[in-house]
Amino acid sequence: MGLLRRLQTGFRLTGQSAGLLRRNPRFAVLPLVSGLATLVYLVAVLGSTLLVGDIGSPLVAVGVLFAVYFGTSLLAAFGNAALVYAARESFRGADPTVVESLRAAAGHAGALVVWALASAVVGLVLRAIESSSDLLGDLVAALLGLAWGALTYFVVPVVVFEDAGPVEMFRESGRTVRDIWGEAFGADFTTEAVSLLLVLPGIAVVAVALLVPDPTGAGPLLLVGVALAAVGFLFGAALQGVTKAALYRYAAEDGSVEGFDEAVLREATGDR
């Protein structure tokens, strides 16, 4: 499939994911819960470090960086798992609640913790490579980061759909990626592009607010811009989670996905 055709398929798939979210707007609450929890966690970790730790110590710096990578990865994975569960149940014609989806994600805590630990270790290694040299280190770290991202692209859907353990989740994610490599990432690119477009209006309003010379008039405008950007980000995050869940459901189970055109899914997964 050519690049233009892949992008067209990606936009159609993204539109169908948006349709599912319009029918289930509460799904966007799941990224919100994850995002707020991540914010609280970061404030707690960094605040504690500044109060009781010597941030200049290399050992403390590595420990703090590991804690940041691990915690943020775990909370993001938890939110994604809840969203994937909600999408999966919706594909089956069910109507899952936010609490039910969060409870289902908690049932996969063991695998998600392992995933977060692996992500934290990889993050530290990539950071060390970047720091080892200038251009070469950045290039190597970027390539390894892309490879890691590709290998683990479907880890969370594998955990939720297959109840996979620590070893199986990486192996099954890698196998699925190999099966639908180019097509799936074409769809992912368009979904991320749409997600970025959703945030841009809010960023534009914030930029205008920062240029307003009168602080009294800039304040409300700034709040509006931040609110718009936040709503766009949450909808975009939900959009990406639903799209990835639909791709995995069709690629791994080769079955119909309610709310999605089978012809689009077939093209998006390489005409299986």
Rank of each mutant, 00 (worst) to 15 (best):
E253K: 14
R266W: 13
Y250Q: 02
T72H: 00
W181M: 09
S34I: 03
L144N: 03
R175P: 03
R178D: 07
A116Q: 07
L46T: 09
V114Q: 02
F161T: 06
A67V: 11
A184Y: 01
E267Y: 06
A246N: 08
P215R: 10
T49F: 14
T190K: 05
S256C: 00
L223N: 03
P166H: 11
A147Q: 04
D214G: 02
P96R: 03
A86L: 07
G232P: 01
A116Y: 08
V62I: 13
G202W: 04
S34G: 12
D188S: 14
P25H: 11
G165D: 06
S195L: 06
D134Y: 08
P157T: 06
Y250M: 07
L3A: 06
D271Y: 14
A147M: 09
T269V: 15
V206E: 00
T9A: 05
S90M: 06
G241T: 07
F11Q: 02
A230L: 15
V98G: 00
D214E: 11
F91T: 05
A82R: 09
A164Y: 11
A246P: 07
R171E: 13
R127W: 12
D214W: 13
A106E: 11
L112W: 02
A77N: 09
L210N: 11
L39C: 04
L4S: 07
W181A: 10
E183A: 13
L200T: 13
A218H: 06
L223C: 04
G19H: 10
P25L: 09
T191S: 09
P220M: 12
V177D: 06
V208E: 10
E162C: 03
L196T: 11
V33M: 06
G241A: 05
G232W: 03
V84G: 01
A142C: 07
L221M: 14
Y248N: 05
G145H: 05
